[in-house]
Design a binder for these strands. Structure first.
Lengths: 244, 244
DNA sequence: CGATGCTTTGAACTTGCTCAACCCTTGTGG
DNA sequence: CCACAAGGGTTGAGCAAGTTCAAAGCATCG
């Protein structure tokens, strides 16, 4: 049923996530609706952007996942992070002409270019917040790689992806779309594919997760968050305070 | 002899590094000279900034080193990166009111606040470039933690710090100031202090480095860079091409 | 000259890696 | 409808890199 998402679904994803960053005016929403009408389709395993390449305009992801990667001489590969639907590649590019990493599609994606200049203030604010969140994700990734063990790394990553998918409305209760292979997970978490496999099995046996056919269910996210010390990234000062 | 650096030395450091980002006008230089005249002195092990705290104005480092850190519940600690003389903490803060990490001084530092708004365009450009470089450093750190082994992590970090110290004019030939304890190195590289110690010794035995009394000498930086696959971060498109 | 903080050393241990094979599913072409 | 290829996932056995714990050495600085 979910083979080719409609334009409306694509738009909803982007709009939901941008609005989660910062409220959007009707004009801006109309502009997005127009932009989304002619999406670019990208096949799996294609470079959306190459390291060192000149960055032109921001590219919004409407559906599908991508990774930021670098390849070493000897074949080792590092995944720096994931790019999910609703998120924007190279959101703030005014003073950063060169791409710092290659971006590769993991599955079939649809994207759309955003205007590179003369952007409405609300959109520009949303993109800037997105950028700040991205830095928070890089920091979280450093913490994972530097100080967490295999289980913790995977769980912590799952929890991050979960909250990010929630932002664009793709979280379905405790189940989420999950198109990552064990190899990609390994390159992200600094482990080997074999060890990722064994760790996932252990997590399944413990009843922490269910993972099959591109879907991941976290049985008790709160408990898992507690276990690995996961914390939501907070970039805004004016975020709603609990029981304020 | 280098007990208390003069105002001129402090200024030189900041000016050199900012000018390396983007050329500065005479007016801007004069402004910096004024700002530097009354530096803030910070003792070792003090928080310059706390995670979650509201960010007010950019803070330029005139001398001394700091680290971006996070502490886990169980005492594990991760160092996300280093802040060196000439560099600016929270350079671009317009849409990022909350500090993402705590910043702690490693030794005695002197700093000065920069204007938070109404900044000249050249300075603002320099800070934006500095910000882009910082993202490059985060990415480099992820690569180190994810895919390099102990030797490689340390060497790669040394090479990065070397080029950064060069930017602010603190590299003296093949020797550089190096105020990091093995514990801090461990928290940065995701290793234990004990293993950092053994790895350093091995590097000394192999004649790769000399490290004593707060100074580090890399015997053959080019060879080391080759060995670990170190590459200088490139953020500008218009950087001079070799043999152009 | 005692205290404090940093470095060095040893021995046992664990986590995660390597290599190599096998299995299962899915899609494709004959 | 079957054969086969390709891309993931699973398994086992041996191994290596890095950890843990604990103690001792060595500076530097009041």
């Amino acid at each position: 049923m979910n083979g080719t998402p409609s334009h409306l679904q694509l738009l909803a994803c982007l709009e939901t996530r941008l609005a989660a960053m910062s409220p959007l005016s009707g004009d801006t929403r109309a502009m997005l609706a127009r932009a989304v009408r002619h999406p670019v389709i990208v096949k799996p395993q294609r470079d959306l952007l190459r390291e060192g390449q000149q960055v032109t305009a921001p590219l919004a992801i409407l559906s599908g996942w991508a990774v930021r990667v670098r390849l070493l001489e000897d074949g080792r590969r590092q995944v720096f992070g994931f790019l999910l639907p609703g998120e924007v590649i190279c959101g703030r590019h005014q003073f950063r002409p060169r791409a710092l990493t290659t971006v590769v599609s993991l599955n079939r994606m649809s994207c759309c270019r955003l205007p590179s200049s003369g952007m409405p203030a609300d959109l520009s604010q949303a993109l800037a917040m997105g950028q700040a969140l991205e830095e928070a994700h890089l920091l979280a990734h450093i913490l994972r790689l530097g100080r967490l063990n295999a289980d913790e790394r995977l769980i912590d990553l799952f929890l991050e992806l979960r909250t990010r998918l929630d932002l664009c409305g793709l979280l379905e209760g405790d189940v989420m779309p999950f198109p990552l292979t064990q190899e990609v997970l390994a390159d992200a978490t600094g482990l080997t594919q074999v060890h990722v496999n064994r760790t996932l099995q252990q997590m399944r046996r413990r009843g922490d997760i269910e993972l099959t056919a591109g879907r991941l269910r976290l049985l008790d996210p709160a408990k898992l968050a507690q276990r690995v010390g996961y914390r939501e990234p907070r970039v805004m000062t004016d975020e709603p305070v609990v029981a304020g």
